[in-house]
Write a protein that binds this DNA or RNA. Structure first.
Length: 586
RNA sequence: GGGGAAAUGGUGUAAUUGGUAGCACGAGGGUUUCUGAUACCCUUAGUUCGGGUUCAAGUCCCGGUUUCCCUACCA
């Protein structure tokens, strides 16, 4: 018997060996592990971010270390307070609690500036007066080396003076930059005298107009990590080429410093980003969808933003499940979108109370209802709120002569394998009675308007009828859901399909809009829902995010949308149920 | 003669670091069932290619192929 050993991904293995060797503290001390999620506040969080958040937060939790949230707000031209707010609330919703206060790169600007001066003094940085074009040309290309800037050998004094005046706001945007003096012939383009600071005369959402120079990503990022004591700086694969620079900057600051004066040097490690089929994580694409009204905003339930998924009814848990399912590797994998759907289904199946809703209603009339007593009588039926979990309790619904059933549960001329209603066929109305169809009505266009059935009084509560003289019990293959017409209210239901029809949107034509699914949204305005569930009942589970979620029996998982009101309830379909019957029809 | 990284069933991953290629999802089949849901059972299919070292190679060596990333005063 082999024990199931929990396998450790390559970053966990790296951290394990760091702890053993005492790389970041006393050997064996796991609490030294420090991670961070460093978003730029320039947009909404999307599915791809959840992987990084969960990885970093999960690691800190696992080791008993620290996880920080730090906004990398080094480019005031693109960043806004609105985004820091939305990002914080998305991370909170995800359940990735960060340690201490929220941190900002802009809090370290002074520190970074002082370190830049140190680099100048060491002859490792210089002010370059070249234009963007000149700098680009001088950098060379992938095959050939670059050539040095004519300003590369300025004196330390001149560089210090110019840099101070850059900071003071004496120069125009683009007129000067501070560059690191590394190697214009490096095969790694990042090392061909990368920019450290540029002039940006734009008001910053936190620091206002106090700064006229802003640090570039490569300079800022490692220093932020260093200041915060981050041990493992985790990022995505495209930063592999930046790691030598990440290390160079910190080494440059440490150069010539005594052991006690050395600044902390974190370890950058790269992993692959999350890519899902039928989606595109490109911020540019998502912005276009919103700006051109292909969707109704960043939180449109079809969007793969965290806000979109939340509104769609996805649970935070499903993202943690997906993250652990796809793992951490350096392989650029494309995960099937259906895996995420499976995760919500799995989570919601256990946690969502059941309800009955008829999405496309037609009337079922029980023609022999009067045989059991008063034609107009209503009978109370007890319905369990969860078929496998009694702790969900039960509720009472009314049963009567006229019911709503799903249009798809009746066929005029059904195939043999159709386990639902057709002339002469009998089904169980879930938790109600068994009914047998003998007639139907249709309008001029041939659309069925009413289905006529008789019920079997011995099947109350959906139970099997008593055995006959030979001990045989009559069986029925299908069970369908229903709502008493007097016990149902109209609600709006929004059904979503994938936004794109292509596995890799935009891959073929170059324009993702060509792959848009025109039927990604279906709004049903007259769906029927149990009136007894309009208000939250005492038995209804409380969800961490306050969103009401149900499984509508046989049709899927739904959540109440923010547009919902007491006058008109609105539900979003989070995911359908698996449907092996529909699959056969294909 | 640019540099960097990665390749394991259809998909995503694992393999005690040289020792029985495992898991999950999917797909196909079946059992149970008051949801054609859930649950449960069975089946399916894999080490990128070619060499080499070795008793033994997914793992080490050599060579090839494919894919991704890098030429922003973005991050």
């Amino acid at each position: 018997m082999t024990e199931a050993v929990e396998s450790r991904h390559f970053i966990q293995q790296l951290i394990d060996s760091d702890i053993e060797s005492g790389q970041w503290g006393a050997p064996g001390d796991r609490s030294v592990v420090t991670t961070r999620f460093p978003p730029e506040p320039n947009g909404y969080l999307h599915l791809g971010h959840t992987k990084a958040i969960i990885l970093n937060c999960g690691l800190a939790r696992e080791y008993g270390g620290k996880f920080y949230l730090r906004f990398d707000d080094t480019n005031p031209a693109k960043e806004e307070q609105e985004f820091v707010d939305s990002i914080k609330s998305d991370i909170e919703w995800l359940g990735a609690e960060w340690d201490g206060d929220v941190k900002f790169a802009s809090d370290y600007f002074e520190h970074m500036y002082a370190w830049a001066i140190e680099l100048i003094e060491k002859g490792l940085a210089y002010v370059d007066d070249q234009s963007v074009e000149e700098i680009r040309a001088g950098r060379g290309n992938l095959k050939d080396g670059g050539k040095a800037s004519p300003f590369r050998d300025r004196s330390v004094e001149e560089n210090k003076d110019l840099f101070a005046r850059m900071k003071a706001g004496e120069f125009e945007n683009g007129s000067k930059v501070l560059r690191a003096k590394i190697d214009m012939n490096s095969p790694n383009m990042n090392l061909r005298d990368p920019l450290i600071y540029r002039i940006v005369n734009v008001t910053h959402h936190r620091t206002g107009d106090t700064w006229h120079i802003y640090p570039m990503y490569d300079w800022a990022h490692g220093l932020e990590d260093s200041i915060e004591g981050v041990t493992h700086s985790l990022c995505t694969l495209e930063f592999e080429d930046h790691r030598p620079l990440y290390d160079w900057f910190i080494d440059a600051i440490n150069q010539g410093r005594s052991d006690e004066e050395q600044i902390h040097h974190p370890q950058q490690t790269e992993f692959s980003r999350l890519a899902l089929s039928y989606t595109n994580m490109s911020k540019r694409y998502m912005r276009q969808l919103v700006d051109e009204n292909h969707v109704h905003g960043w939180d449109d339930p079809r969007m793969i933003t965290v806000a979109g998924f939340r509104r769609r009814g996805y649970t935070p848990e499903s993202f943690w499940m997906l993250a652990s399912d796809v793992g951490i590797t350096k392989f650029n994998a494309i995960v099937d979108f259906s895996r995420l759907e499976n995760m919500v289904r799995e989570d919601l199946n256990k946690r969502a109370p059941r309800a009955m809703a008829v999405l496309d209603p037609i009337k079922l009339v029980i023609t022999n209802w009067g045989d059991g007593g008063d034609e107009d009588r209503l009978e109370s039926m007890e319905v369990p709120n969860h078929p496998q979990d009694e702790s969900f309790g039960s509720r009472t619904v009314q049963f009567g002569k006229e019911l709503w059933i799903e249009r798809g549960d009746f066929m005029i001329d059904p195939p043999k394998k159709f386990f639902r209603l057709g002339i002469g066929r009998e089904v169980r109305l879930r938790s109600g009675y068994w009914v047998k169809c003998h007639d139907f009505k249709a309008d001029a266009d041939g659309n069925v308007t009413e289905v006529h059935c008789t019920y079997d009084p011995s099947t109350r509560g959906g139970n099997n009828p008593p055995a006959d003289e030979e001990g045989k019990v009559r069986k029925v293959k299908g069970t369908i859901h229903w709502l008493n017409v007097n016990d149902a209210i109209d609600v709006e239901v929004r059904m979503f399909d994938r936004l794109y029809m292509a596995e890799r949107p935009g891959k073929k034509s170059g324009d993702h809009l060509d792959d848009l699914n025109p039927d990604s949204l279906t709004v049903i305005s007259n769906a029927k829902f149990e009136s007894g569930l309009v208000d939250r009942g005492p038995q209804e589970p409380a969800w961490g995010d306050g969103i009401r979620r149900f499984q509508f029996e046989r049709t899927g998982y739904f959540c109440e949308d923010g547009d919902s009101s007491a006058q008109k309830l609105v539900f979003n379909r989070t995911a359908s149920l698996r449907d092996s019957w529909a699959k056969q029809g294909r």
